[in-house]
Simulated scan of single mutants.
Amino acid sequence: MKHIVLLAALALAASTGANAQQRIDRNQIINSLYQTEATVARLDPIALEAAAAAAAASGGDNAPGPLSDSLSAYPQLSIEINFDRGSARIRPESYHAVGLIADALHTPYLMGQRLVIVGHTDATGGRELNFNLSKQRAASIYDALTTTFNVPAAGLVAIGLGEEQLQDPANPDSGVNRRVQIINLGE
């Protein structure tokens, strides 16, 4: 299976500052999300979110498992979307990236696919607060895609995982952990 993960937060952030947006294009997004074969296992995004909610509520280390374990077979894209601190309001500089995602989702390659928008946070703040914030941020991306950019809502679902799936577990407060991930579940 073709599998490309594009992390759009690192290269430009290193060269121009942490709040800079990575320059990506529609074709990179399509290539990251395009599925050439049917995925055998079916992911239940609602069950994944419920496991993250339980882990956040318990305050323990019973996170739903590494994201790569359950989702590595799916085409996916991780992208930096800037939000106001402690808020689900998308910063204006991130609308270009959201627009590129929408443009890619309007292509024949991705139309009709089921996509999950996953919100992630760093470990700053309480786990339940982070879980709720990640849900709100994923919902903000969903709302922007479906209202501002007219992406069909039927093929999208938004979930939050809070700090339960850190990109960089060794640095839980790192900005690289604050991201939105889009996963293609196929048709």
Rank of each mutant, 00 (worst) to 15 (best):
Y74M: 02
N177W: 06
D61H: 01
E37T: 11
R127Y: 06
R127D: 15
E93Y: 05
G59S: 04
Q21C: 07
R23T: 14
D69N: 13
A154F: 14
L77Y: 00
G162K: 09
Y109H: 15
A88N: 13
D84W: 01
G65K: 03
I24D: 07
P172R: 03
N184I: 10
P75H: 00
E128M: 11
Q113S: 04
N171L: 08
L166G: 04
Q165F: 02
G59D: 12
P45M: 11
I46L: 09
G17C: 05
P66F: 14
A54D: 14
F83C: 09
L161R: 12
I30F: 07
D168R: 09
L71Y: 04
A57G: 06
H3A: 10
D61C: 05
A53P: 00
R23I: 12
G99P: 03
R178N: 15
P172S: 03
G155N: 11
K2L: 11
L6W: 03
A158R: 10
Y34D: 08
S87M: 07
D44I: 09
T146Y: 10
S68W: 06
G186H: 02
I141Q: 00
S134E: 13
I183M: 05
L161W: 07
A11Y: 10
L133I: 12
A38N: 14
A9D: 15
H106L: 11
I159M: 01
D122K: 00
A97H: 07
R89T: 15
S15N: 06
A53G: 04
P152M: 05
A56L: 04
Q181F: 06
Y95N: 08
Y34G: 00
E164G: 09
I30Q: 01
Q113P: 00
E93R: 07
S58R: 08
D84A: 15
L67Q: 09
N19W: 11
E164P: 03
G17Y: 01
E128Q: 13
S174Q: 02
I90D: 11
Q21M: 06
D143K: 01
Q76N: 11
L100A: 01
H106P: 06
P75W: 10
R137D: 12
R178Q: 14
I159K: 08
Y142R: 11
D173T: 11
S58M: 03
L6P: 05
I182W: 07
R91P: 00
N177A: 01
V116I: 13
Q22A: 09
N31V: 12
G175T: 11
A88C: 08
I182Y: 04
A139Y: 09
Y34E: 15
Q165P: 02
R127C: 04
A8G: 14
A18N: 03
V157M: 12
P64M: 12
G65N: 00
G59V: 03
G86V: 04
R127M: 08
T146N: 01
L129I: 10
H120N: 09
